[in-house]
């Protein structure tokens, strides 16, 4: 397992190195940090909540993209995510993420692939009165359905649909720049899909609320909180809402690092899943 992790990290740093020495014009038509970070499901946003903002710094007429690595280490589990996004014209975002969730106590792992599409439908995160609105979907394919099925999940694939609104206030409280996001998500996913979709308790779409609020200390550092409501479809173990407290560092338009302290509470019956989360992102 460590061998595999290490290889992944190495590949990632090779990519980072490669893109940072390529002098090719990279998309930079938007302001620093407006590309956000990348969620564990591959969409641009915070750590666990997709935002209305699109990945990278591509503005109208530009192509942009990101490659990223997420890693979370809580009491009994580790989550590895590798992913990439493409953004055309700050209008359309395509994303792919591969999640690998290791069960350190039980052994083995749960894996899924997530294909995402997001479209900015109205507004701009900074300019104008309205927030920026985007709609998106995340199509998820669980690659390890035996365990989810055994605990009552109904399907090995599912699609989440969401509407997100994000707004930044350049001169918010304390004369700091603030950012707030609300996302409504229709989903059947159990533990984001790692435990499959639908279950013995419920097999219908349900609407979940997710939110993030952050304050920029200066142009490079942001601190904030996130909350994600989750459904409860499986009788074998109650699923719980997630939250985290994060710090993001945006040294330039190429790199971003987000670290979070998260409490995922009880996952699949194992309580007190507290720990750290990190997201490394390179924008192209």
């Amino acid at each position: 397992m460590y061998g595999k992790d290490f290889a992944m990290v190495r590949v990632f740093f090779l990519i980072m190195l490669a893109v940072s020495v390529v002098p090719a014009a990279h998309a930079e038509g938007r302001l620093l940090a407006t590309g956000g970070a990348t969620t564990i499901e591959g969409s641009a946003g915070g750590g666990i909540v997709p935002w209305a903002t699109l990945s990278s710094y591509a503005a109208e007429g530009e192509w942009g993209g990101t490659v990223q690595l997420n890693y979370a280490d809580v009491e009994d589990y580790q989550l590895d995510v590798v992913g990439a996004t493409l953004n055309y014209g700050n209008r359309l975002e395509l994303s792919y993420a591969r999640q690998d969730f290791s069960l350190s106590r039980l052994g083995g792992s749960l894996k899924q692939d997530i294909y995402g599409v997001k479209v900015r439908v109205a507004g701009d995160v900074i300019y104008g009165e309205l927030p920026q609105f985007s709609i998106g979907m995340q199509h998820k394919r669980n690659q390890t359905f035996a365990l989810p099925q055994a605990v009552g999940a109904r399907s090995d694939s599912g699609t989440d649909y969401y509407l997100a609104a994000t707004k930044a206030w350049l001169d918010g409280p304390f004369h700091r720049t603030w950012l707030a996001n609300i996302t409504l998500r229709a989903t059947k996913a159990n533990e984001t899909g790692l435990l499959g979709f639908g279950g013995d308790l419920n097999n219908d779409y349900e609407l979940m609320t997710e939110a993030s609020v952050g304050m920029f200390l200066n142009r490079h550092w942001i601190v904030g909180v996130e909350y994600r409501q989750k459904p409860n479809n499986l009788g074998f173990a109650a699923e719980q809402d997630w939250h985290d407290v994060f710090v993001g560092w945006f040294p330039n338009k190429r790199f971003a690092v987000v670290g979070a302290y998260t409490n995922l509470k009880t996952i699949a019956g194992a309580p007190e899943q507290k720990g750290f989360y990190i997201n490394l992102q390179v924008s192209l």
């Binding site: 038509g29 503005a59 007429g61 530009e62 001169d171 004369h175 700091r176 720049t177 142009r219």
Partner: peptide, 30 residues
């Protein structure tokens, strides 16, 4: 374009940084 507007904003931020203007005043002007 908005990208050009953002470029101008970045130039202003660079100027304000050189003049060591506090982040709070920078944000108010921006």
């Amino acid at each position: 374009t908005t990208a050009e507007f953002n470029a101008l904003v970045e130039d202003l931020i660079a100027a304000m940084e050189q003049h060591e203007i506090a982040v709070s005043a920078q944000n108010r002007l921006l």
